[in-house]
Design a protein around this nucleic acid. Structure first.
Lengths: 335, 335
DNA sequence: TTTGCTGAAGTTACCGGTAACAAGCGAATA
DNA sequence: TATTCGCTTGTTACCGGTAACTTCAGCAAA
């Protein structure tokens, strides 16, 4: 009776049962073709019978590879990330990798903590939202010598792999759509105001100034975005600037909330008030009228990340890679 | 030069630097009070200087504890789960545990796979959505001898800890609210139709039959729920049963989609069509009119799970525990 | 002075796998 | 017939920590 064994079934138990050594059982699991068919069968039977579950920690420790990848996302309640996540997960699962999800709550400090945690889990790669990280996080990443993906935004100086879109340009493009339709007294509504939201707003400002229009009709809050907030903020703006003709909302939640508030106040959309959101969530197609928005190719981002990461994990050289997946302005009924 | 070392900084490196053995460094990290203050300080300096990151696999292997808990959720895009998740995460983090998230896509088979995976990761506990599991999953859980939480639903035969609410009773209660307001020709709209959705629908049927009313006005689909689907399904129902007075939707997404469709068709809500959803998501308060719904105490579920789990992990005996967190019918403007 | 105790650090063995190399053996080749 | 090759299985050492027990110094009590 060993002193400290956990009582669980181990490779050795299987090996004893079959009458081989544990390395052979290990092979039967990882490289089946290297074990004779008959033996493999007996091993599989024993595994089934005894209910063996591999100890991932032991395997990771011995091999130095964990076959898992960490995906950090800013928010679990924001469905923007779920499609990206799906693409990544499906793409990586096919390569035998598991995806571990962590959520940063839009905090760089929490991101840093998670990077630390997941590096100690020995993940084979890290996928991070955004391109800005704390000093300490950068040091951790550098030392870890592990593939890193930065996504959602674009940067000229990617750490490694960068797949995203130009948030500023998207802000400009949506503003352009307003201008094309003759709207002039435009406002901007933003919540949370993480770096990407700031870029979108900057895009709006840029285009407005370029057109010689005022950018004073602008309201932002550090609070998380929500439908309710969109409504409340629209109401505040209308009180302060009753002459508003249209509002570009930093994301779809706010835009939908704003639409609901317009309905409450019986303001015709888009005749009395034009609205647009950002991201192209499901809800923008469903409302009455449907909401104008900037559709981001989130599924494609996820797929691309998976492909690139698998290349890197399979041994492709570590040369920085940057891909702009673009965006699409869709005007729909609210603009 | 060792043959296979990973090149990363290890406890031994720190120990060498400070001039002690690695067990002392290990203690300085896990049980600081057992190491003299002066030495502790030097160790901390060395850790900082060399950039040591503990190897979680090695620790888990040696100690048999991973300090992590797996949380399986059916869907990442459904914000129903994000509040539960938040409660669990905050509650467990305080106890030094990390939460690993897996998503089942409402599939019992995928749940089984994830249970297997996370057991091989050596999680100290598992949190599962629902109370129904595959045979194989049950065997895995039994053998693992690890605390298990089943949530969202209630069961008379919990595996271990069960925190949830009576979905059938909630369906009955919402139906009752329709009846109280004089609606009689009621329909039910359901998507995905996982087990909990079925229970809610059964609640509707039960109450309707009890009142001697027809349950034929019922439309369900196995597809995932979405706003768009809610609108489409409402349109189908209206075509087939133009005399409909109200619809109980199996969840808030469908209800919101149905509301948008009513707006499109210029049907007054609730005068011409009463609507209700389920869960009490943010959006139900924001729409015009706000949507009636059954509010489920999701944050409380998460908090409770964390509390109970920490007790169990701290050594509380394994006696089955069951807690009904209840629900609240809120009628709001759409009913 | 001796004994016992306490706190701090060390020794040893072990967790459960995998890498790298070695060995055995029958079939194919020279 | 001897050599080589390929396939299968085994041996050994090691991954990076932690549990449990041991040692040792310093000090209080006897």
């Amino acid at each position: 009776m060993p002193r400290r064994s956990s009582g669980r079934v181990t490779l050795q138990d299987i090996a004893d049962r079959v009458g081989v050594t544990k390395i052979t059982v290990s092979r039967a699991l990882r490289e089946p073709h290297r074990v004779s068919a008959a033996l493999r069968l007996r091993i599989e039977e024993a595994i089934d019978e005894l209910g063996y579950i591999p100890n991932h920690s032991a395997g990771a420790l011995a091999s130095g590879r964990s076959h898992s990848v960490a995906l950090l996302i800013p928010s679990l309640s924001n469905s923007v990330f779920s499609e990206i996540q799906r693409g990544i997960e499906e793409g990586l699962r096919a390569g035998g990798y598991r995806v571990l999800i962590g959520h940063t709550g839009y905090s760089m400090l929490e991101e840093e903590r998670l990077i630390d945690t997941y590096l100690s889990y020995g993940v084979d790669a890290l996928i991070l939202p955004g391109t800005r990280h704390t000093e300490h996080a950068l040091r951790l990443l550098e030392r870890a010598r592990v593939p890193v993906v930065e996504t959602l935004e674009l940067t000229d100086t990617p750490l490694d792999i960068n797949v995203g879109l130009d948030q500023h340009a998207a802000g400009v493009a949506m503003t352009q759509a307003f201008l094309d339709r003759g709207y002039r007294r435009l406002g901007f509504l933003g919540a949370r105001m993480d770096y990407r939201a700031q870029l979108r707003m900057a895009g709006w400002e840029t285009r407005m100034k370029q057109a010689g229009l005022s950018t004073e009709r602008c309201l932002t809050t550090p609070h998380p975005s929500s439908y309710r907030l969109g409504g409340e903020m629209l109401a505040s703006m209308l009180e302060r600037w009753p002459d508003l003709e249209g509002i570009f909302c930093g994301n779809d939640d706010l835009a939908a909330g704003a639409l609901f508030e317009c309905q409450r106040q019986r303001l015709e959309v888009p005749e009395r008030m034009a609205l647009a959101g950002f991201n192209g969530l499901d809800i923008t197609e469903a409302t009455t009228p449907p909401l104008a928005t900037v559709v981001t190719p989130r599924r494609r981002i996820g797929d691309l990340i998976a492909v690139k990461l698998r290349e890197r994990l399979a041994g492709a050289p570590l040369s920085p890679y940057r891909e702009d997946v673009g965006f699409e302005v869709q005007c729909r009924g609210s603009l």
